[in-house]
Each structure stands twice: as C-alpha cells, then as structure tokens.
C-alpha cells in the first residue's frame, strides 16, 4: 500500500514536471523560431536590417496616409543611401492636376541606334547583368518594297484576289533574332525599327488582373507598381498584350557608381528579386516638368511626349496632323503610346 502510494506520488511529480518542461520547451522553441524568422527576414547589412521589418509590414502605398508615406520614403532613402554610398532621394510626388501623359514615336525617323534603351536603363536603375533588364525593345523589321517588275507576275483569282506575285512586298516581317541586333552602322538598308515599351493603356489589362492591386493607373495616366506590395505572381505579365513588363528573376545587379540617386517611390527606385517592373514614362522626371530620358537622348527627335489634355502640346498636334496608328487596338486597351508617320 505504501509502495503504491509512493509510486503514485513520484509519477505525479514526473507528470507535473513533464508538463512544465513541455511548456517551457514549447516556449523556448517559439522564441527560437521567431528569432530564426527574424534573422531570415532581416538583412545582414545594418541599414537593411533596420528597415526590413518596417517595410515588411507596410501596407499598399495607395492606402497609406500621408504620414505613413513620408515614413516609408524616409526609410527607403536611409537604406538606399547606406547601400549605395551616396545621398539617394526617393520622391513621393503625386500626379499633377490637369495632366494626362501621352507619347508619340515617329516610326520613319527612328534609326535603331538603341540610345533610348541605354538611356532608359541608366535613368531607371535597371539591372545591368544577370539579367540585363531593358524596358524598351527595339525590333528590326524588314521594309516593304514596291517593284514595278513584279507588277505582271501573279494573276487575279475568280474572286478578284491577287494570287502569286505582287508588285508590293509587305512590310513588317521580323528579321530573325533581331532584338539584340548589332550592325556596324544604323540605319541599315531595307530595315526599319520598331521600338516597343509600356503603352500606359487607358484601360490597362495588367491592372485588372493584379490580385493584390499593387499595380494601378495614376490620374496622369501612368500605370505604376508598388514594388513593396508586389507578390511576384506574374499575372500582369500574362495579361499585358505588349510584353512590356519585366520580372526580376534574380537579385538585380546595379553597381553603386551607376545608380541614379534621383528616384521616385513608384518609379525608378531600386527593385528587389521577385517583383515586376516596367516603363513609367520616367515619372521621377516628367512630374517635375522634364522630358523622359528616351525623349531627351533620341538623336533624330523621333520621340515626342506631352500632355494629352493640352491642345497645344506636341502629342496633340501630332494626333491632329500626322498619320497615326496604335498597337493592338483590337483589344480596346486604349494605349496612350502612338506611332506616327510624317
């Protein structure tokens, strides 16, 4: 009887201590786990470590109060300044009133020099290698031809449709592998050049599909991305009919000395791995009344930019006087990027 009682008491003690131990262990494990997560989330660099937590928990930029926006911008300025070893400014300037940006490109004048591509990369802090990200593509295309010799070749079918040879050879055939063409001189004979970038659609399909509403259209017509809110699902990339969006497959490589310190929160501030980016009509410049980098650098003046609400702007004049066409009008995206011919 005594033995049994003793056993029960000991077991009771063991039982009690086990529960206590278990709770203790669970508590310690939870703390260790949280510490581990914290270590994983925070960066190794001082500046990064200080702001990552706050950045992690910040909300969608559109939903932030003015105070929250200011704090977010200050955090980024501090981190970027320490990371890149120079004074970096992050602008949060909103869209100007009574401005709707539009762009026009003279397809006849473009000589395919790709200076716009390089200027864009430099201005917008795009990754320089692995991957080399470019927001503007310039495609080399075959010119259409008219040959009088071919006029009699071919014959009309029963329905009056030309069969066989034709005097006119259609333009618009993409030459093989011409995205990164490297000719000795431009423009080349029998080729014309077709630059493509974000069309800043009035009804952007990319905005419609974004599940977290990180990409949206600003009042001045520019479609922007809050990189901190982007989850990298690539839905917008699938929806964009112009192939204008780029995904950061790796950690972007932006050398410190090449970093443009004049940035905007919704524009050219350095991006991170796993987020989407695209042309923003250089809003860090255009919202201050400057031209985009590509317009400024174009040596032949093929690129024009302006306010579609202003009847005196270059874009409106082009729309009134030139022969204009747009890409993929069939989709009713209402692109605000126009191609024109003199």
């Amino acid at each position: 009887m005594k033995r049994e009682d003793k056993k029960t008491t000991i077991e009771k003690n063991i039982e009690g201590s086990t529960r206590r131990d278990f709770l203790k262990k669970t508590g310690s494990l939870s703390v260790a786990g949280l510490a581990g997560v914290a270590t994983l989330m925070t960066g190794t660099k001082d500046a990064q470590a200080r702001v990552t937590w706050a950045e992690w928990f910040q909300t969608n930029y559109r939903l932030m109060t003015e105070e929250e926006k200011r704090e977010a911008i200050e955090r980024l300025e501090k981190r970027y300044s320490e990371e890149y070893g120079k004074k970096v400014t992050v602008d949060g300037r909103p869209a100007q009133k009574n401005v709707l940006f539009g762009y026009a490109l003279n397809i006849q004048k473009c000589i395919g020099c790709r200076r716009c591509v390089k200027a864009c990369v430099k201005e917008n802090n795009q990754s320089r290698h692995d991957p080399e990200i470019e927001w503007i593509r310039v495609i080399r295309m075959e010119k259409g031809k008219f040959s009088a010799e071919d006029m009699d070749k071919g014959y009309p079918s029963d329905y009056g449709i030309q069969v066989g040879g034709n005097a006119y050879k259609n333009a618009g055939v993409v030459l093989e592998g011409q995205h990164y063409y490297q000719p000795e001189r431009v423009p080349e004979k029998d080729a014309f050049y077709f630059p493509i970038q974000c069309m800043q659609c009035e009804k952007p399909p990319c905005v419609k599909v974004c599940p977290v509403r990180t990409t949206y259209r600003e009042p001045d017509g520019i479609v922007v991305i809050d990189y901190n809110w982007c989850i990298g699902c690539r839905m917008c990339m699938g929806a964009c009919p112009y192939w204008a969006r780029r995904f950061n497959w790796g950690e972007p490589n932006l050398p410190k000395e090449e970093m443009n310190p004049d940035t905007h929160y919704l524009g050219n501030r350095p991006r991170m791995k796993g987020v989407v980016e695209k042309c923003t009509f250089c809003l860090q410049r255009t919202r201050k009344g400057r031209y985009t980098a590509c317009v400024e650098v174009c040596p032949v003046g093929a690129r024009k930019f302006g306010n579609l609400l202003d009847p005196e702007s270059e874009v409106r004049r082009i729309l009134e006087r030139k022969r204009v066409f747009r890409l993929r009008v069939d989709l009713n995206t209402f692109p605000k990027f126009f191609y024109f011919i003199d």
């Binding site: 080399e132 495609i139 077709f194 112009y242 192939w243 995904f247 204009v324 890409l327």
Partner: peptide, 24 residues
C-alpha cells in the same frame, strides 16, 4: 536569370509584329 528574362521577352516580338497596323 538572363535566360529566364529572355524567355519572357523574346516571344513577344513575333506576336507583336504579326499584326496589321491600320492608320487612324
């Protein structure tokens, strides 16, 4: 990353150009 980037971008060239562009 470079290969993945090109896989994203290059198919667009052909699709974009295989269209008729009509002057407004």
């Amino acid at each position: 990353p470079q290969r993945a980037y090109l896989e994203d971008v290059l198919p667009g060239d052909r699709v974009m150009m295989a269209r008729e562009y009509v002057v407004m």
